[in-house]
Amino acid sequence: MALDDTTEELARAAATGDHRALGELLKQIEPHVMRHCMRILPYQQDAEEACQDTLFAVARHISRFEGRARFSTWLHIVTANCARTTYRTLKRRAAEQADEELPTQRPDPRRVSVIAGSRLDLLDAMEALESDKPDLLQALVLRDICQLEYAEVAEQLNIPLGTAKSRIHQARKFVQAALGSDYGISR
């Protein structure tokens, strides 16, 4: 998410309690957040829900933004977390709906679209990683989703560079193993 210096300044001002800056910040980041959510979730309505959740989370937790790293990095993490939370909520609702034997309103994207199915499989793998090894997931999200350099990942997590590289490697192996049977990936 490439945001300009004006956005970074608005974020710092909003973090100190400037409500005008927060309003302007939310307006500026909404299109960026929506694009990011669309890359993660296969349906526009789901991405819109995740986008709104992200904007709400930013408004609610902007005071936690310390400015040690760029706001865009912090926003990437919040967006990815909200998108994954939206996915888990939708998955739970779908399971409840199936239990009630109500017809689903959406087809299973794994059967309709290779791209959408792949995204959902990746979200499932990330969910499994989060429940098993959350510290690995954090490193993976920062490197492969936020596209930070290894040194930036280490700085964000306040860990040595070697530890960051190791966590990313282990996370990738975990995800690869989780996806392996469906995608012909050898373990």
Rank of each mutant, 00 (worst) to 15 (best):
121 D>R: 15
171 A>P: 02
162 G>N: 11
167 R>S: 04
45 Q>E: 14
138 Q>A: 12
38 M>K: 11
52 Q>T: 10
107 P>F: 15
143 R>P: 02
39 R>Y: 01
21 A>K: 02
13 A>H: 05
97 Q>K: 14
136 L>P: 00
47 A>E: 02
21 A>M: 04
170 Q>R: 15
174 F>D: 08
43 Y>E: 14
140 L>N: 03
36 H>K: 13
119 R>P: 06
40 I>D: 02
152 E>H: 08
71 F>R: 03
130 E>P: 00
32 H>V: 00
85 T>Y: 14
75 L>T: 07
65 F>E: 07
31 P>T: 05
150 Y>M: 14
70 R>A: 15
176 Q>M: 06
121 D>Y: 15
23 G>Y: 01
7 T>K: 06
87 Y>A: 11
164 A>N: 06
51 C>T: 15
119 R>D: 03
24 E>D: 05
98 A>Y: 10
63 S>R: 14
158 N>Y: 01
12 R>S: 08
124 D>W: 11
125 A>S: 13
97 Q>N: 12
122 L>T: 15
63 S>V: 11
175 V>F: 04
187 R>E: 12
163 T>A: 11
102 L>F: 12
73 T>M: 11
29 I>K: 01
146 C>Y: 02
181 S>E: 10
104 T>S: 13
40 I>E: 03
8 E>I: 14
135 D>K: 08
94 A>K: 15
31 P>D: 09
179 L>N: 04
71 F>H: 01
148 L>H: 02
95 A>R: 13
83 A>K: 07
183 Y>M: 04
39 R>C: 05
185 I>G: 02
8 E>G: 12
24 E>P: 00
133 K>V: 03
125 A>V: 12
118 S>D: 08
159 I>W: 00
67 G>E: 09
146 C>V: 07
21 A>S: 10
186 S>Y: 11
103 P>T: 11
54 T>R: 05
49 E>M: 06
24 E>A: 06
87 Y>F: 15
24 E>G: 00
61 H>W: 09
166 S>H: 05
168 I>F: 04
26 L>W: 01
79 T>V: 06
